[in-house]
């Protein structure tokens, strides 16, 4: 059985920055427990010697030349979809936490 509790769902929602309602927390706790019980089978399907695959097609050393391209946006393009800006920078409300 999984160890998903309402408290852990709230913690995860905090990490994911989603202000879940109480009803959502309750529903998700039940759903996640069920889902995790199913997906947890992967742990018994593999052993320590099995290598992990993070990329389906193995490639390496894929690089870009160090030159500026026409992908650069104009400031107008950059700010066009901003919910709020001051003409040159994006505007956000006060920040509570500090830089990491």
């Amino acid at each position: 059985m999984s160890d998903i509790s309402e408290e852990s769902v709230r913690h995860l929602a905090g990490l994911a920055r989603i202000a879940l309602t109480d009803a959502e927390v309750t529903a998700l706790t039940a759903e996640l427990s069920q889902i995790v019980d199913v997906v947890a089978q992967v742990t018994s399907a593999v052993d320590a010697d099995t290598p992990a695959t993070s990329h389906p097609i193995p490639l390496s050393n894929v690089y870009r030349e160090d030159v500026v391209t026409d992908d650069v946006l104009t400031p107008e393009q950059a700010l066009a979809s901003a919910p709020e800006h001051d003409g040159s920078r994006f505007k956000v409300s006060a920040i509570l936490g500090e830089e990491q």
Binding site: L12, V39, A40, V42, T43, A45, T53, S54
Partner: peptide, 18 residues
């Protein structure tokens, strides 16, 4: 998340190898 990565994500990546 911390403490679960190896069991879940890590194992899933290994299943991918299989």
């Amino acid at each position: 998340s911390a403490g679960y990565y190896d069991a879940y994500y890590g194992s899933a990546q290994k299943v991918r190898t299989l």
